[in-house]
Amino acid sequence: MLVLGCLLLVAAVLAAFAALTWRLTRTIEADNPPVGWFVDVGPARIHLLDLPPGEPAPPEPGAVDRPAVLLLHGANVHHADMRAALGERLSRRLRVIAPDRPGQGFSGEGGREVSDPGHQVALIRAAVESVGAGRLIVVGHSLGGLIALRYVLDEEGSVDGLVLINPTTHPRPGGLPWFQRVAEVVFGAPLIWTVLLPASLAMLDRLSTRLFRPEPPIRAYAARTGLTLGLTPRRFRNSMKEYSDLRNHLEAIVPRYPDLTVPTVIVVGDADPIVPPALHGEILAKVLPRARVLRLPGAGHMAHHRHAEAIAAEVERLAGLPPP
């Protein structure tokens, strides 16, 4: 009887947390509504922001259209992270397209293979084509850097340049750190759909600080980027799937890197503890035929927020714009 009573108590507690998580999710989605376009691309509906240039280049004899900028966000966030960091700044002079990657934000998964970079690229490419974008500068941060690399490898004919910001590029020697392996087991479906969201909201400031370390977070980062949206069950589940499958996808793509010939800028925060450059960006730079490295001394993982001007200047240079 004692065991049965304990089981019933646990079930009641989890049910209460599940109801709380459901209400919190509805509130978070209402507070961070979709602000862009929805594009149906076969098995999924992709949500993307399409920002026209605020200062379009005046027509000149023989002038060519400038490429658009495709911003690909990292894990556990959605397009608002890249919009807040770079989107508004770059859209002063260039068209900017910022999608929610499949399974994140308000984009659908498009199938169980949501963690596969090739699957994501196919959906994003179809969405980009549907809004009439032609040539691109592709910009990816963190895990979005892996998607950006796969995008260019699969669609190189449509890409004029690539900018990678603290990108995830290579399998970590020895596999994932122990705490990530534990997280994959602990944060199974029961906890993702019950206690994860309330617990995360209680430590939101600490989460922001951890993302930016050793630099301080930007003011009101969580509010400006809708950080809580990525903590809701469906989206967090998809992020965990990306993490668990990441090593296999990295091992598959690494041999293709030397085939990437577009001009590439690899931005590395040399103090990034989340995606250490010595294990990722610095190694990638050695095998890409047309890569240069922009090192940011003292910068952490969220360098696109803290060093936006330097990164925006690289994007504009690749797009053929003169300095402002």
Results as ranks from 00 to 15, higher is better:
residue 8 L to V: 13
residue 9 L to W: 12
residue 10 V to C: 08
residue 12 A to H: 05
residue 14 L to S: 07
residue 18 A to I: 02
residue 22 W to E: 12
residue 25 T to C: 06
residue 27 T to D: 15
residue 28 I to V: 15
residue 33 P to E: 06
residue 36 G to A: 04
residue 39 V to Q: 10
residue 39 V to G: 02
residue 40 D to N: 02
residue 45 R to Q: 06
residue 46 I to C: 06
residue 48 L to D: 07
residue 49 L to E: 12
residue 51 L to W: 00
residue 51 L to P: 00
residue 52 P to A: 08
residue 54 G to Y: 08
residue 54 G to F: 11
residue 55 E to N: 12
residue 55 E to V: 01
residue 57 A to Y: 04
residue 57 A to G: 05
residue 60 E to C: 06
residue 61 P to S: 03
residue 64 V to K: 14
residue 65 D to T: 05
residue 66 R to S: 13
residue 67 P to S: 09
residue 68 A to N: 04
residue 71 L to T: 03
residue 72 L to E: 01
residue 72 L to D: 01
residue 78 H to S: 11
residue 80 A to V: 00
residue 83 R to C: 01
residue 86 L to W: 06
residue 87 G to K: 10
residue 90 L to F: 08
residue 91 S to R: 08
residue 92 R to Y: 06
residue 92 R to H: 14
residue 92 R to E: 15
residue 93 R to E: 12
residue 96 V to W: 05
residue 96 V to A: 04
residue 97 I to T: 02
residue 101 R to E: 05
residue 103 G to Y: 06
residue 104 Q to C: 06
residue 111 G to S: 02
residue 116 D to N: 15
residue 117 P to S: 14
residue 121 V to T: 03
residue 126 A to H: 01
residue 133 A to L: 05
residue 139 V to W: 05
residue 144 G to P: 11
residue 146 L to A: 05
residue 148 A to K: 03
residue 148 A to N: 05
residue 148 A to Q: 04
residue 150 R to Q: 15
residue 151 Y to G: 12
residue 154 D to M: 15
residue 159 V to E: 03
residue 161 G to I: 08
residue 162 L to I: 13
residue 167 P to V: 08
residue 169 T to V: 15
residue 169 T to Q: 13
residue 170 H to E: 12
residue 171 P to D: 07
residue 176 L to A: 14
residue 177 P to S: 09
residue 178 W to A: 13
residue 183 A to H: 06
residue 185 V to C: 03
residue 191 L to F: 14
residue 194 T to R: 11
residue 194 T to Q: 07
residue 195 V to N: 01
residue 196 L to H: 12
residue 198 P to K: 10
residue 198 P to C: 12
residue 200 S to H: 00
residue 212 F to S: 14
residue 213 R to P: 04
residue 213 R to M: 13
residue 215 E to R: 10
residue 217 P to Y: 07
residue 219 R to G: 02
residue 219 R to M: 00
residue 219 R to H: 09
residue 221 Y to P: 00
residue 224 R to I: 07
residue 224 R to E: 08
residue 226 G to I: 03
residue 229 L to N: 00
residue 232 T to D: 04
residue 234 R to H: 12
residue 236 F to E: 01
residue 237 R to F: 06
residue 239 S to K: 01
residue 242 E to A: 14
residue 243 Y to T: 10
residue 243 Y to I: 14
residue 245 D to P: 00
residue 246 L to E: 05
residue 248 N to Y: 12
residue 250 L to I: 06
residue 251 E to S: 07
residue 258 P to F: 14
residue 263 P to M: 09
residue 265 V to S: 04
residue 266 I to D: 00
residue 266 I to P: 00
residue 270 D to Y: 02
residue 270 D to E: 00
residue 272 D to F: 09
residue 273 P to Y: 13
residue 275 V to L: 02
residue 278 A to W: 12
residue 279 L to T: 07
residue 282 E to M: 11
residue 284 L to D: 04
residue 287 V to I: 11
residue 289 P to E: 10
residue 289 P to L: 10
residue 292 R to S: 09
residue 300 G to S: 03
residue 300 G to C: 09
residue 301 H to T: 11
residue 302 M to N: 15
residue 304 H to V: 03
residue 304 H to W: 02
residue 305 H to W: 10
residue 307 H to Y: 09
residue 307 H to T: 00
residue 314 E to S: 07
residue 315 V to D: 06
residue 315 V to N: 05
residue 322 P to S: 13
